[in-house]
Computed example of a mutant assay.
Amino acid sequence: MNEKPSDFGGLCFSRVVIVGANGAGKTWLAQRIAQWRGLPGISKDALALTTGWAQRDRAEVQAKVLDAVAAEAWVLEGGPSILLPEVLTRANLVVWLDFPAGLRFRRILWRSLRYLGRVRPEHPPGNRDWPGFRQWRFAWDAIHKDDAFRSAIAAGLANTNVAIIRLTTPAEVTHFLDQIA
Rank of each mutant, 00 (worst) to 15 (best):
N92T: 03
A181E: 10
D57G: 14
M1P: 15
A101N: 04
S6E: 02
V87C: 09
F133M: 04
A54D: 08
G20D: 00
D129Q: 03
V162F: 00
N161F: 12
W136G: 15
S151C: 10
L93Y: 07
L88N: 14
D67G: 01
S6P: 02
V162N: 02
Q55Y: 12
E122T: 04
K26A: 08
P121E: 07
L84T: 02
K64S: 12
R166G: 11
A73H: 08
A70V: 13
Q35K: 05
H175Q: 05
I180G: 13
L66C: 07
L109H: 08
D67N: 15
D129K: 09
I18W: 05
A163Y: 14
R37G: 11
R104G: 00
I18A: 04
Y115D: 11
K26T: 09
G78I: 00
L167C: 01
V61M: 06
G9K: 10
Q55G: 00
G20T: 07
R104L: 00
N2F: 11
D98V: 05
G79T: 13
D7A: 03
A48G: 11
P5H: 12
L84Q: 14
D57S: 14
G25F: 08
T50A: 08
D129V: 02
I108Q: 02
I108E: 03
P100N: 10
H144F: 13
R137G: 10
R118N: 07
G41Q: 15
A73V: 14
Q62I: 11
P131N: 12
I42C: 11
A63Q: 15
H175L: 08
R32M: 12
G20W: 07
Q55W: 06
S112L: 04
W28G: 01
T160C: 08
L157C: 14
F176G: 04
P121D: 02
Q35Y: 15
A24T: 06
R56S: 08
P80F: 12
L66G: 06
V162R: 04
R114H: 14
L109G: 03
I18D: 02
V65L: 06
H144W: 15
V173G: 12
F149S: 01
I18R: 09
W140M: 09
A91W: 08
V65R: 13
T168V: 13
F176I: 03
G132P: 06
W110V: 11
A171Q: 15
A139T: 06
R166M: 06
V94Q: 02
V173W: 10
A30W: 03
K26W: 00
T160N: 13
L88C: 07
A63V: 03
D7I: 01
W53V: 01
I153K: 14
L116R: 09
N2V: 05
W36L: 07
L29R: 09
L167P: 00
A142C: 14
P85F: 01
